[in-house]
């Protein structure tokens, strides 16, 4: 147990440092915002700079005691965790060229399989969901969805 808490608090510290870096970058960016005129005494720069200072101070408190955090996934679980966003990325990029049905099939089949469905069931689930959601959105709710060049 002590092992995971140690690594967790270290992960918390890395996160705290990243947020501190974000605060500094955001503050510098905020102090350099270009504007031609300001109709109020504060202008567009002051609030971002204030927020950057607040976040930086809070990060210092956080770094002092990051508290408990969950351990990072490893091994096979890490592969699965990385695969889900990659599938989302792929289906987002395929949405317009390949169309809604194909891209949603990829997403539902892939994620279903990652979540432990046997291959056959994942395939059936993917086809079924692609058809179901196409019907619900295109016919029942009249939401615009790309047909794609594959079928269009």
């Amino acid at each position: 147990m002590s092992d995971t808490t140690f690594s967790s608090s270290r992960i918390g510290r890395i996160g705290g440092l990243l947020m501190l870096a974000l605060a500094i970058a955001y503050g510098i960016g905020g102090s350099q915002i270009d504007y031609a005129f300001a109709s109020d005494p504060l202008g567009p720069r002051v609030v971002p700079v204030l927020l950057a200072i607040i976040l930086a101070v809070l990060c210092l408190f956080y770094l002092k005691n990051p508290g408990t955090a969950e351990a990072f996934p490893t091994g096979q679980l890490l592969v699965k965790i990385v695969a889900v966003p990659l599938l989302l990325l792929a289906s987002a990029l395929l949405l317009e060229p390949a169309g809604f049905a194909a891209s949603i099939f990829l997403l539902t089949f892939g994620v279903g399989w990652i979540f432990g469905a046997p291959l056959r069931l994942a395939l059936i689930g993917g086809v079924g969901q692609a058809a179901l959601w196409w019907f619900v959105f295109s016919y029942l709710l009249d939401v615009y969805l790309p047909v794609g060049q594959l079928f269009g």
């Binding site: 955001y26 960016g29 905020g30 915002i33 270009d34 504007y35 031609a36 005129f37 300001a38 109709s39 109020d40 202008g43 567009p44 971002p48």
Partner: peptide, 8 residues
């Protein structure tokens, strides 16, 4: 909106 500046 008040200054017309684009931020971030």
């Amino acid at each position: 909106a008040t200054s017309g500046a684009y931020r971030f």
